[in-house]
Structure formats: C-alpha cells, structure tokens
Design a binder for these strands. Sequence first.
DNA 1: AGAGAATGTGAGAGCTGCTAACTTCAGTCA
DNA 2: TGACTGAAGTTAGCAGCTCTCACATTCTCT
Lengths: 228, 228
Amino acid sequence: MTTNFSEKASSLMPDEFAATDPALGVTPKSAYHHGDLRAQLIAAVRELVESHGPDGFSVAEAARRAGVSSAAPYKHFKDRHEILRGVVSEAMDRLRGAMEAAAALHPPGSIEAVAAIGQAYVDFARAEPGVFRLVFGLTEGHENAPDLLAKGECCFGVVVQAVAASLGSQPGDPNVQRCAYMLWSFVHGHSFLNIDMKTKVTTAEIDDWEYLMRVSRAILDQSARSSK
Amino acid sequence: MTTNFSEKASSLMPDEFAATDPALGVTPKSAYHHGDLRAQLIAAVRELVESHGPDGFSVAEAARRAGVSSAAPYKHFKDRHEILRGVVSEAMDRLRGAMEAAAALHPPGSIEAVAAIGQAYVDFARAEPGVFRLVFGLTEGHENAPDLLAKGECCFGVVVQAVAASLGSQPGDPNVQRCAYMLWSFVHGHSFLNIDMKTKVTTAEIDDWEYLMRVSRAILDQSARSSK
DNA sequence: AGAGAATGTGAGAGCTGCTAACTTCAGTCA
DNA sequence: TGACTGAAGTTAGCAGCTCTCACATTCTCT
C-alpha cells in the first residue's frame, strides 16, 4: 500500500473541531476530548474504502482525517478489522432501509415490488462499490460477528417478505425461501459483475428495470408453476 | 496485518532447491540462481491468498516461502499488485478450462451442458474461495490489465457458446448474449453467497445440480419464449 | 574469453498496526 | 469543595511490510 494520502490529510485539523459540526449534530466537549470520534472514524474509513478500494485504507490515515493521533482509534476499536466491521454494519443498515423503502413504493405482492428491491440493491452497489464489496468480502473477523450475520438475514428477510406476498404463501415456505434465494443470487451477481466491469460487452446494453422485471417474472412464474 | 506467518516460514530453505522439483519439472540452475522464481512466487501467493484471505498475503512472506530474499520478487514483478494479477491470470485460465471440460461431458445444445458450466463455476468458487474472491475483487491495478479483461471475456464466451447452441441461435445474437449474462449473474451470485455464508439459512438446503438445472431451464425457456 | 543482461543479495527509508506509559478531562461522592 | 476514577486523548517505540539502491553472481551471446 504505497498510496499517497497526504494531499488531503491536513484538511481537518484539531482546532476546527472546536466548533460544532452541524453534519453530525455533535458538539465536541473540548478541544482535547473529541466528542464523537467513533462515528467520525467510521465515516472516514467509509470514504477511504470508497476512494481507494476495500484494502486501500489505513487506520493511521483515518485518524489523520479525524484530526487525532494514530493511536486514538484503538481506544474505540480493538483493531482495524473491528473498524471495518463498523463500516459494514452501518452499510447494511442503509442497504436494508433502501430495499424496504423501494418495496414500499409498489403494491404489496406485485412483481414491481420484488423488482424494486433488486433495483435498490443494484443502485447501492453502483453508488458505493467499495463499500458493497467490503460488505460481501469480509472474511477475517467475520467469524465472531453474529450481529453482521443477523443483519444479513434481515436483508434477506426483506426479499422473502416480498416473494411470499407475491406468491401468496408464507415466508417460512421452502418454496418461498428458495425463490427468494434465486432472486438474491441473481441480483447479487448482476451487481458484482456490474461494478467489476469484467463484462464490458453486456452491461452497457442492459436496462436495469426491464432486466429485473424480466428476471423476477421468470423466477416467480416457474416457482408458481412448480409448486402446483 | 498482524497475521503470524512465521510457523511455516522455514519449511523451504534455499538448499532444498538444489534438488529438482518434480512438481514443477524445473531444475534450478544453481544454488544462487533460483530457476523458476516467478512461477513459484505465484504459487506461494496463491496458497497464501487461499489460507489467509485476499489481502492476507505479503510479498515478503511469499519470498520467504520460495527461499529467496524479500527483494528478489521485485526482479520479476513491478509491485505486489502485479503478483496478484499473475495469480488471477493463472486462475482464470484454470476456470475457463474447468468450464469447457464440464460442458464437453454433455451433448452440445443440451440444458445439461449449460448447467454443467455453472456447476464448474460454483465448484471452483467453493474449492478456492480466496482466489475466486481475488479474481472478482481486483480493483487496483486492474485498469491497466487488458489481458485480464480479455480472459474474462473468454470465460463469458464459454457460456455464450453453450447458450447459443441450446437456443439454436448465433453467439452474436443479443438475445443469446443477454441470456448468457443472466445465467452468469445467477451462478456468480450463487457462488459468492455460498462462500460468504451470509445466507446460512438457505445454502445448506440447496442441491446445486437440481438448482442449476432449474435455473438454466427457467432462463432458457423465457428467453426462447420472448424471442418468438 | 569477455561484455552485458538477468537475477540474486543486504541495507535502509518510510510506511503501517498496535502497545505501553503517560496526560487531560468529566463526573461522582464523601 | 476537592480528591478519586475512568474514559479518551497523547507521545514514543517495536516489529513487519513495501519498495529502492548499490552491489554480487551467474547466464548468454558473440
């Protein structure tokens, strides 16, 4: 990692934190005590991950951006992995929120509601590819993170709900679960291929909404047929 | 990265390289000149990526495992990213080979051939999750790697061929391209969710082959229908 | 055989992650 | 009120990493 961060490093110096930060709604309690370092570190890391790739961040640089010493972060996080987990956790909350909001714009049980969830997913990946990759690429430290697993299940739950409504079945129905999983696989793959641009041929020619509607219909149809 | 590599570090010392390595079929030309350092470094990095995650490798440790000084790798690779690209390139060759071999086991044009390609893909991801993630997570250095892009297109080409045969169309047909892309998205997403284990609920209950056959049929069917 | 290129070496600069010991400050309770 | 405590900052420093440089050794080509 020889990336040179130093250009922006000095944009936020300690004295600036003497003033209230309206964006965070937090007033530092003093020049010495920072006020809300934990949240600011997560925000800084999120930005770094976004601009320099999932492994292109450093705790030192995040600290620099927050205007504290490079040892300060370790008062709030055990190690660098824990900071990343913080970023992932926050991102998963936003992702779930976006999916729920998208679904709410369409009639419950409609195919549009299902496709809209997929669209929100793809939009998220495209808007924050670095963070998206981080969310689904966290290998180390993941073992001891049941909260992240739970949040993942929560996101999946949004899809399951929409599929169940669409098929007129219960969320616990294996058919619904499988169908939701198929849809998720699909959208997940589409998102990844999209941000990877490994498939330059195709992605440019694909209209998301039409594509997602087509896929959702194909999967829901075959699921409805096979359950008869 | 505080991972402790040192337990295994001394398993390969320089003097051992005086003997021919049958696995590589290469005889080092002397104790000083290594013989085939480039290939051995790539192999070492592949192992490290597999056992310690995509960013859990270091050039220094790879050099140690190959029994050379930590400066030696830089005679063969510009920087750490170039080594990773080497690993990715090699992995893509193997992936394409596996997909082609799988398809060849079934009648051309059959749905089984399409599903088999997907199965090979999933198998690869499951057998080498670290490398798989690396292949599709390479962000830095990727810009200047047209060879990797070309290899990616090659892999996609295998799917396109099978789909074209199955639909009785030409590979250039947009319908074929879209259908192949849908299938790839699907299998790609399934693979990723699988190795991530973010979806503990579902993955355990899914039988790959039945699942892949179902998906392939659903997609090929709707594609055949919509093209009429 | 000798020149030049290729491939190895050790030393070292400048990062990083993380720890240890210290300081500053806010809140609490006698 | 004022000493005590714990939270949250500080500096100093170790070990490990990436990558470069100057130098050594070997291969290859004429």
